[in-house]
Each structure stands twice: as structure tokens, then as C-alpha cells.
């Protein structure tokens, strides 16, 4: 564990908690893409199956359980409890156009052709594009609530910090995982446009459609 990875995990946890609290407190999921949240729940489910097979550390296990729990709680709030506030007209990104290519690629490019490894690879590739429905929704509505922009900022920063973590691990441990690194670079690049707006526009972020 290094400072970049810990900071990244805490930023990721902050993003997940911010979103869950925002929906719960305002009792509304307006401006939130339910499709992105479904993709994140799928990412955590396919990536953390090793909860059943291997124990790495208490920290690792606790964080995985929290991530999975919050992801499904968020999906539940969006599609069940606060369904009436769900912005279905703008949340129209075809996620099958993400899942199918990512699924195919995870069969073609992976470290090991075993079920757990292919599912892990699928989750890594999927996570790199999972935010697209959310960015698409914001570009369609033309604006995002301030709290949503903070959520997106933390979510974007988490994988950017992981990039530094991988540089650190390569330099000090000689460890590197090309699949995670390439997907992490793609994921962070997708946020760049948003980062620019978040920093320059301060409060109201309007991504030009």
C-alpha cells in the first residue's frame, strides 16, 4: 500500500458516499445517470468475486463490501425508492454498446483465460467507460448540480491517483499490470474534459453538448 493508492481509495469511497448521501438527503436522483450506477454495480460485482475465494487484508475485504453495498443501495434508490425523480428522458445512453465490446475484449485480451480472471478483466475495461452515460446525461441537460460535480471530481481523481500508484509500484516493486494501467489511462482521459470545466467553471458545470 502506498499514499497514492490509499488517497485513491479514499477519494473513491468519498465519491460513492457523496452520491449516496446526495440522493438520500435530497430524496431525488435528478441529474444522476442510473445507467452509470448499474455499470458500477456490475463492475464491483465482477471484480470482487474473489471475496469468496481469497483474503488479502481486512482493509481490502471491508472496502470491497462497502463498495458493493453502496453501489447496490444507490441503484435501489434510483430505480425503486426515488424512481419518480429519475430522469429517464435524458439517461438514454445505450449501455449495451459498452457491455458487449468490453465483454468481447475481456475474452481477447487478458492475463489468464480463467473465469475469475476474465471477469476481473471485464470489470477493469467496463469501469474505464462506466461514467460515459453520466457524462452523456450532463451534456444533454447542459448542467450538473454542484454536489454531482464534486461526486464526479472525486471519482475522476481516484483513478488518476491510481496511475501514480502504478508508477510508484513499478519503480519500487517492479510490479505493473498493463491491462489496469491502459484502462486507467483511458478512464482518466474521459474525465479530462469534465476536470477542465470543474476547475474553470467552479460552481455550475455546463458540458457543451
Amino acid at each position: 500500500m502506498n499514499i497514492f493508492r490509499l488517497a485513491g481509495d479514499l477519494s473513491h469511497l468519498a465519491a460513492i458516499i457523496i452520491l449516496l448521501l446526495k440522493i438520500w438527503k435530497t430524496r431525488s436522483c435528478a441529474g444522476i445517470s442510473g445507467k452509470s450506477q448499474i455499470l458500477f454495480a456490475l463492475v464491483f460485482t465482477t471484480r470482487y468475486l474473489d471475496l469468496l475465494t481469497s483474503f488479502i487484508s481486512l482493509y481490502n475485504t471491508c472496502m470491497k463490501i462497502i463498495y458493493i453495498g453502496c453501489a447496490y443501495a444507490t441503484v435501489h434508490l434510483i430505480y425503486m425508492k426515488f424512481k419518480a425523480t429519475y430522469d429517464g428522458n435524458h439517461d438514454t445512453f445505450r449501455i449495451e454498446f459498452l457491455i458487449v465490446p468490453v465483454g468481447g475484449l475481456s475474452f481477447l485480451v487478458n492475463h489468464d483465460f480463467s473465469p475469475l480472471e476474465i471477469l476481473w478483466t471485464f470489470s477493469i475495461y467496463l469501469e474505464s467507460v462506466a461514467i460515459l452515460p453520466q457524462l452523456f446525461l450532463i451534456s444533454k441537460t447542459g448542467e450538473a448540480e454542484t454536489i454531482t460535480t464534486h461526486y464526479l471530481f472525486c471519482l475522476g481523481v481516484y483513478r488518476a491517483l491510481y496511475l501514480f500508484n502504478w508508477i510508484w509500484r513499478f519503480y519500487f516493486e517492479g510490479f505493473f499490470d498493463m491491462i489496469a494501467i491502459v484502462a486507467g489511462v483511458v478512464q482518466t482521459i474521459l474525465y479530462c474534459d469534465f476536470f477542465y470545466l470543474y476547475v474553470t467553471k467552479g460552481e455550475k458545470v455546463a458540458i457543451p453538448s
Binding site: 493508492r5 481509495d9 473513491h12 471484480r47 474473489d50 481469497s54 488479502i56 481490502n60 472496502m63 470491497k64 463498495y67 492475463h111 489468464d112 480463467s114 480472471e117 476481473w120 491510481y162 500508484n165 510490479f175 499490470d177 491491462i179 489496469a180
Partner: peptide, 10 residues
């Protein structure tokens, strides 16, 4: 490839 298969990151 075994070190890559033990994924210790979240």
C-alpha cells in the same frame, strides 16, 4: 502471470 492474477488492489 501469477503475480498479475492475485489482484490486491480495489
Amino acid at each position: 502471470a501469477d503475480e498479475a492474477s492475485t489482484h490486491d488492489e480495489l
